[in-house]
């Protein structure tokens, strides 16, 4: 469903691109892990996929339309959901209102449906006692699960995450990765996760390593 075509990106120096000539395909119902040393450009790549920035070279296609054609704001609203390492949530809202707000902005099918949002939060272990509490009073792991719940309640077919388990302990990491797997396999969405941790990567359906300006698929 998502394809990169001769994708390339650099910050200042055109002769020193982070990556160049990237041709990858991401399918729905699958999860992908992107590994790589620090500073190789994983986050940069993800920001292009997420429609937060424009490629310097090449193109990204959703189906048969390029992101340029769709328009980045429109693309972010309807087609992609993003989970960051931190700062994912509206700090002045409860988990419930975070979900309702995201559904309203993305014009999701279940927009305004509190029962639906509550179900998803409960599934992710956010109990009724936490649902209407301010998210700042939740633990890091709980907050990350709310962020994942947000991607689940929206209709975007593509879910990208940048080191979503970076701040979490082992138990929470496992729970979060399990959820991503469910999103891919049960909701039939395409999940792309950037991670440092080989354990996390190993649980995904496919693994890529960014090295020497190129992506190589690991066996």
């Amino acid at each position: 469903m998502l394809k990169t075509q001769d994708l390339g990106y650099w910050y200042q120096d055109k002769t020193q691109p982070l990556f160049q000539g990237i041709n990858l395909t991401f399918e729905p119902g699958k999860s992908y892990a992107i590994l790589g040393h620090s500073g190789t450009g994983k986050t940069t790549f993800l920001s292009l996929i997420a429609g937060l920035d424009k490629p310097k070279e090449g193109d990204i296609l959703l189906g048969d339309r390029s992101l340029k054609q769709i328009g980045l704001t429109n693309y972010r609203r309807h087609d992609v959901a993003i989970v960051f390492q931190a700062y994912n949530l509206f700090t002045y809202m409860s988990p419930m209102n975070n979900l309702l707000t995201a559904m309203a902005i993305t014009e999701a099918e279940h927009a305004g449906d509190r029962a639906y949002a509550k179900q998803i939060l409960n599934d992710l272990g956010i109990g009724d006692d936490l649902i209407d509490r301010n998210v700042q009073h939740l633990s890091g792991g709980q907050q990350q699960r709310v962020a994942i719940a947000r991607t689940m309640c929206c209709d975007a077919q593509l879910v990208v995450a940048d080191e979503p388990t970076g701040n979490l302990d082992e138990d929470n990491t496992k729970a979060v990765i399990d959820q991503f797997q469910r999103i891919a396999h049960e909701q039939n969405k395409c999940v792309i996760i950037v991670t440092h941790e080989p354990d996390v990567a190993a649980q995904c359906d496919h693994q890529y390593r960014l090295e020497n300006k190129q992506f190589t698929q690991l066996a």
């Binding site: 997420a50 429109n74 972010r76 609203r77 700062y87 994912n88 509206f90 993305t106």
Partner: peptide, 11 residues
């Protein structure tokens, strides 16, 4: 950050 999240949601 809040504005960033809003923008990432496509607001």
């Amino acid at each position: 950050f809040e504005i960033g999240v809003l923008l990432s949601l496509g607001e």
